[in-house]
Computed example of a mutant assay.
Amino acid sequence: MIEILHVEDDADIREIALIALSLSGEFRVVQCPSGEDAVRQAQGYTPDVLLLDVMMPGMNGPETLGHLRKIPAMIDVPVVFMTARAQQSDVDQLLSLGAAHVISKPFDPLLLGEQVKGIIQEHTPWKIAV
């Protein structure tokens, strides 16, 4: 199973992502409604990939990533930002923070699982047998 830590403040988007990722049966998804919750959840948990919303109240996605990277087990976990602000300058800024990929919202639920698998294969190929 591919372990995903998904951080998204919008309950509807969390549900759509969970359904989309559950379709294949290849993912175990832990969801958090806030960056603060994600930092708490990440203690003692090492996912294969982080899916982080960018714009959230309180701790936004980049701030959440900064806190998660302080946890030794999270230093090398690939991060994918999901954002409605997907102009090239926004994407470039997220990539400069160490993002492996940026997925634009609204995302295609039918493609989300394959996108995530491709990102993991690209960044940690030993985790997924082709």
Rank of each mutant, 00 (worst) to 15 (best):
M1F: 13
E3Q: 15
I4D: 07
V7G: 00
V7A: 00
V7M: 01
D10V: 12
D12F: 13
I13D: 11
A20P: 02
F27R: 02
V30T: 13
C32R: 08
C32Y: 04
P33H: 01
E36S: 08
D37H: 12
A38Q: 05
V39A: 03
V39I: 09
Q43V: 15
Y45F: 14
P47F: 00
D53V: 13
D53Q: 12
D53W: 14
D53K: 14
M55W: 13
M59R: 09
N60F: 05
N60W: 09
G61V: 03
G61E: 02
E63T: 04
T64Y: 10
L65S: 03
G66E: 11
H67A: 15
L68D: 08
I71S: 00
I75P: 00
V77A: 02
V79Y: 11
T83Q: 06
A84G: 14
A84D: 08
R85I: 04
A86S: 14
A86P: 01
S89G: 02
V91N: 00
V91F: 02
Q93Y: 13
S96I: 01
L97V: 01
G98N: 07
G98A: 02
L111E: 14
L111P: 00
Q115L: 08
G118P: 04
I119V: 06
I120T: 03
E122N: 14
H123C: 13
T124K: 15
